[in-house]
Design a protein around this nucleic acid. Structure first.
Length: 743
RNA sequence: GGUCGCUUAGCUCAGUUGGUUAGAGCAUCCCGUUGACAUCGGGAAGGUCGGUGGUUCAAGUCCACCAGCGACCACCA
């Protein structure tokens, strides 16, 4: 044995040995223990957050050593929105965009892109020593997954849980897609607040005062479609205005002032313009009162044909132009340039979102979430740390119907088909044979273009809200059908992850699975959906325990982010200090809230510990050659006493360790072993027995070896390489701590 | 604005049901190297446990209020 533990000498060698001796597959005997790996994005490369998958590996190794048939199934996610976003950035570099391709070509190109860029993360997981059954990897676009997703959708559709409806969604005009509530980010910003004069109609009895009323808004650009203005009926200052007619400052169209309680009397002037097609609140009010809902902005983020002179302008340009016009007409009372408000931005591209009305597919969640809530309340799923039980319950109770459609090509296309005969007014966008974008209603388009041309070049279908459709995995026979171009939300497929990863027969023995370890960020996105789907389809929860960690931070507790420049590359740390050191540093000092501190000095400290473990082993082994034949007991009573005390202390350690591990308190479990090995075993017991051992007392040495190896078994899940390297040095190249309980 | 959480050594955090001199890692300082390990060993310094008040024989631990920080959710015309 060398004087130092050299990770690079051992890591590849040991990993290959583990893999070749079949240790990654679940043993045929033993009680099942199952973990499904949260599938990383297929084209991802390892970041600090993935390092925490170590938690899964720790539990798998821990259970394996204890003789369980522990199985860890890996997988990869197609990650619809995220992957397409990355791909489109590549396209942009070549001066192209997704609009240059028909849907099918775009999909195939992304598929190729993903294939070329996937697999890297598995190599990196191997570097970390992960003991997953790589041969069983599942991809969320595998055929059997598609089948399962289709069947789930069909079942839900048949049971009336699916509906299609016009809905106000947060729409990102850049990404060309709607976003779910959770994908929306709020950002505080300072924007000008315009106080705009709305002239009173001549006949108005109020005219003799000022001749106008003032409305405050940050969004003057869609005013031309506005038809109503509102005040709060309880607002003493303004309620007398109800029923008054003012003129639209851009179009001179008469507008009625209505009363509704949602208006905040204290905001601005207490008078609000209503733009139902582009504002969530206004939309709600308009629906309630039956007011007209007129769109002013296209899905591309430009003013549409209703905008007259502004038609075709981007929102930003139109805003400036509208303000100019209003200034010319002397209709701007004042501009508050220091108005702070929150805007919604796209979680991917950070651009402003437009509230838009588009038909979307929805899942009714009322019954689904109810059973999830009951299961969680009964602790059928337990959360670690416990606080997340409250979090998820709170979120589930507030959960609205789930919009599952995304205007995204990369994903599982919704298995719905629209007959062109039955839906003549369906709006269609496609590329003709020359690559020109053509759009219009299908019955008009079919007069000039063949169905095949349209289907081949298809980019998007936008069927009216009342369109008829057929649910089918494959294209229906008979008449001409176009398939829905929307794809399922990523969480619709990954929410069924626990239902597509096991083999049919394993649902008897391995379901519910034992643990799900994942980032707390996606507790609501993902964990809640898995629980709902599993209860709906399998009538049981998908896992018994959920282990959550939150963001990875640097040594000062600052969240790691590219803009802060404090991001550490895990693989670089592994190269520098070894996988054991990296793994242990994530667990050591893991705070209760789950915040993970990753810092160079921490990894270095753990590298030192790995070396210490190695050298303890080296010392005990080295003394073996000095030994004399066994006598049965240590030579002196003093040594016997020390050994007894050491064993008692070890037993206490093991007991505490077990308790912590079963409660997923990994940090205290690891800390206990760290403390024992370094500051009790090495600093105290070895020192006390050193004289005897050096004098050739083999009994004393054996006692040390026994306790050391026992502690190494406790340490192995956290630091698999150094512990197995020592084990192999002692007992030969064919041995491993993992299977040591079987010998 | 709502909900929850946090505040203990220079930094990041432990402190189990209230019970002797409040701990760890890193950082700092001093001493030590011929046999396991300098990626080490021995030692030291450093905390009125956010503030105020209360319960108690006893409070870092329980309660109230205050201050600061954070997370999530919601709203913002």
């Amino acid at each position: 044995m060398d004087t130092r533990f050299d990770p690079f000498l051992w890591e590849t060698k040991l990993y290959t040995k583990w893999e070749q001796s079949g240790l990654f597959r679940a043993p045929l005997t033993g009680k099942p223990y199952t973990i499904l790996m949260p599938p990383p994005n297929a084209n991802a490369s390892l970041h600090a957050g993935h390092g925490m998958y170590t938690v899964d590996d720790i539990m798998i190794r821990y259970k394996r050593i204890k003789g369980f048939s522990a199985l860890w199934i890996p997988g990869m996610d197609h990650a619809g929105l995220e992957t397409q976003f990355v791909y489109e950035k590549h396209l942009a570099k070549e001066g192209k965009s997704r609009m240059d391709f028909d849907r099918k070509t775009l999909y195939n190109n992304i598929a190729t892109f993903v294939r070329e860029n996937s697999g890297l993360i598995y190599d990196q997981f191997r570097r970390l020593g992960f003991m997953a059954d790589w041969n069983r990897s599942v991809f969320t676009l595998d055929p059997h997954v598609l089948t399962r997703v289709f069947e789930t959708f069909k079942k839900m559709e048949q049971e009336g849980l699916v509906y299609r409806d016009n809905y106000m969604v947060n729409y990102c005009t850049h990404c060309g897609t709607s976003l779910a509530e959770l994908e929306v980010q709020h950002e505080t910003r300072i924007d000008p607040l315009y106080y705009i004069r709305y002239p009173l109609r001549k006949a108005s009895p109020l005219q003799d005062k000022t001749g106008y009323i003032v409305v405050a808004t940050v969004r003057p650009e869609p005013i031309f479609v506005d038809t109503h203005v509102a005040v709060n009926p309880k607002d003493k200052k303004n309620k007398h205005l109800i029923g008054t007619i003012v003129l639209n400052p851009l179009t001179d169209t008469p507008m009625e002032i209505i009363g509704d309680s949602y208006v905040d009397p204290d905001f601005g002037t207490g008078v609000v313009k209503l733009t139902p097609a582009h504002d969530q609140n206004d939309f709600t009010v308009a629906k309630k009162l039956g007011l007209p809902i007129v769109r002013a902005i296209t899905l591309q983020g430009r003013i549409d044909q209703n905008g007259g002179a502004y038609a075709g302008m981007t929102v930003k340009k139109a805003r400036a132009a509208v303000v100019e016009e209003l200034k010319r007409k002397d209709l701007i009372e004042k501009i508050d340039t220091n108005y702070e408000h929150a805007v919604t931005v796209c979680y991917k591209c950070k651009r402003d979102l437009e509230p838009m009305i588009i038909p979307n597919w929805y899942i009714k969640v009322e019954s689904l979430k109810k059973s999830a809530i009951v299961a969680i309340q009964k602790d059928a799923v337990q959360f670690h740390p416990k606080k997340y039980k409250r979090h998820i319950l709170q979120w589930l109770r507030a959960m609205h119907d789930w919009p599952i459609s995304r205007q995204n090509a990369w994903g599982i296309r919704i298995p719905v088909w629209y007959s062109v005969d039955d839906n003549p007014h369906m709006h269609v966008v496609f590329l003709d044979s020359k690559g020109n974008s053509v759009q219009g209603e299908i019955h008009t388009l079919l007069k000039k273009h063949s169905f095949d041309t349209i289907e081949t070049g298809l980019q998007r279908v936008s069927p009216p809200n009342d369109a008829t459709y057929v649910v089918s995995h494959n294209k229906p026979e008979g008449t001409q059908y176009l398939q829905e171009t929307d794809t399922f939300d990523t969480w619709f497929s990954s929410g069924q992850w626990p239902l597509v990863t096991l083999r049919e027969d394993e649902y008897q023995t391995r379901f519910p699975t034992d643990m799900m370890g994942t980032l707390a960020d996606i507790l609501n996105f993902w964990v809640s959906r898995m629980i709902m789907f599993s209860l709906y389809l399998q009538h049981t929860v998908p896992f018994k325990h959920v282990y959550l960690w939150s963001m990875v931070a640097d040594s000062k507790g600052q969240k790691m982010s590219k803009s802060k420049g404090n991001v550490l590359n895990p693989i670089q740390l592994v190269d520098q200090y070894g996988a054991d050191a990296f793994r242990a540093s994530l667990i050591f000092g893991l705070s209760q809230g789950g915040k993970v501190i990753l810092a160079d000095e921490k990894v270095r400290a753990m590298r030192n510990f790995a070396n210490k473990v190695w050298n303890i082993g080296r010392f005990i082994l080295l003394q073996k050659s000095h030994s004399v034949p066994l006598s049965g007991t240590p030579r002196d009573k003093q040594s016997e006493k020390i050994i007894k005390k050491m064993n008692t202390e070890y037993e206490a350690l093991e007991k505490k360790y077990e308790k912590n591990m079963e409660a997923f308190k990994l940090s205290p479990a690891f800390n206990g072993v760290y403390d024992f090995l370094w500051h009790r075993f090495a600093d105290v017991y070895i020192e006390q027995l050193k004289k005897a051992v050096l004098a050739g007392d083999e009994e004393a040495r054996l006692a040390l070896e026994k306790t050391y190896m026992a502690a190494a078994r406790l340490l192995h899940p956290f630091m698999p390489f150094v512990t197995d390297a020592v084990y192999e040095s002692y007992y030969g190249v064919d041995t491993s701590i993992i299977s040591s309980n079987q010998t």
